[in-house]
Amino acid sequence: MTTVDPITTRETAPATGAPAPSGPSATARRYLMCRPSHFAVDYVINPWMDPTSPVDAGLAVAQWERLREIYLDLGHTVEEIDPLPGLPDMVFAANGGTVVDGIALAVQFRDPQRADEAPAYRAWFERAGFEVHDPKHVNEGEGDILLAGDLLLAGTGFRTAHAAHAQLQEVFGRPVITLQLVDPRYYHLDTALCVLDERTVAYLPEAFSPGSRAALRRLFPDAILARPADAEVFGLNAVSDGRYVVLPVQADGLAAQLRERGYEPIGVDLSELRKAGGGPKCCTLTLREREASK
């Protein structure tokens, strides 16, 4: 898969008065991101991290800026939280919280190396006017909590505690589906599953327990089943607006599967950030406002 220039993508959109394209449709989103100004790999809290491997911090920033540009070119809004020194993983904004219906559930990290990120994100949600709830158990935000239609898909097994799933239902008032992760390489749900739209997901079956695989088959019979080679380059750590799917450029097999279903894949190279176990979705927290009818 070659990287798609977002300007080209924008120019292919129909002119005013032209019929809308068939197939999946895009919805404008509001995202929160954190510039990797202090990015480094100084410790090991997942299988992808190796402090002995060189990291190009400048390249990490440039790759992140490209991701941000793609979102803006697609018509999305990007908010930014200030990066803090000594928190090299703060760039992975998806772990900073879960925001649904104008309500933000703050996070509690499993690892002490990331603990100081939690109050920074919580303070940002308060300043932005969200109703904020404090966590009762370890939960790592949208890393393990993904909204699919009316359902909250909730991962557990490595980071977010299973006990946190009950709080999700109480805070957001939505049904919660527990999904057990079994492969330590896919330690967060968003590394093994991507929500493409309200009815469709893509996921790696091997990353889940037998019972969770069975549940996913029932819930999403038309899901895209990713290949291990694409998951290993964080292809499922993708961001979809319902039509355009921003994913690592290295996941060319998954990109082809998406095209077959009518989605428009946009490749981005986040190879430096992947050295810390992150991809496009890890860098992107969706800020969902309360619906007007509520």
Rank of each mutant, 00 (worst) to 15 (best):
A120Y: 14
S271K: 00
G75N: 08
V44M: 11
A123S: 15
G97P: 04
R290V: 03
Y186R: 04
P83S: 12
L254T: 06
E140C: 05
D252T: 14
P119R: 02
V182A: 02
L151H: 04
R10W: 13
R30L: 05
I103C: 04
R122H: 06
A94D: 08
A28M: 01
S25Q: 15
I266N: 00
A128M: 04
N139G: 03
R122L: 03
E260Y: 01
E264P: 01
E232R: 00
S293K: 11
S37M: 07
E79N: 14
L196Y: 07
L105A: 08
R10T: 10
I70S: 01
D197F: 06
G173I: 09
A238W: 09
T178Y: 04
I145A: 03
R110S: 14
T98K: 03
A128S: 04
Q250W: 08
L181C: 12
A214Y: 00
R68F: 03
Q63D: 13
G262M: 02
G173D: 09
S22G: 13
Y187R: 09
G149V: 11
G267K: 09
L219M: 11
D89K: 02
A223V: 14
D252N: 14
E65H: 02
G86F: 10
S22E: 11
E206R: 03
I81Q: 11
G129E: 05
H188L: 05
T191A: 13
A202M: 09
G211Y: 11
F220I: 10
V245Y: 04
R29C: 07
D230Q: 02
E117Y: 04
E289H: 10
R259G: 05
Q257D: 15
A202C: 07
V44S: 09
D197S: 04
E264M: 13
A215T: 13
W64Y: 14
V176F: 02
E11L: 15
V91K: 01
M49W: 09
G267S: 09
Q113R: 15
D241G: 06
D89E: 08
P119T: 02
P265G: 10
A231N: 00
L74R: 08
D82A: 15
T178V: 14
A164F: 03
R259I: 10
A40D: 11
R227Q: 12
M33H: 02
G278R: 04
L87E: 09
F220R: 09
V100C: 01
F92H: 08
T200D: 06
G97R: 06
L270R: 00
L147A: 10
R274V: 07
P24M: 02
H76E: 09
E272L: 04
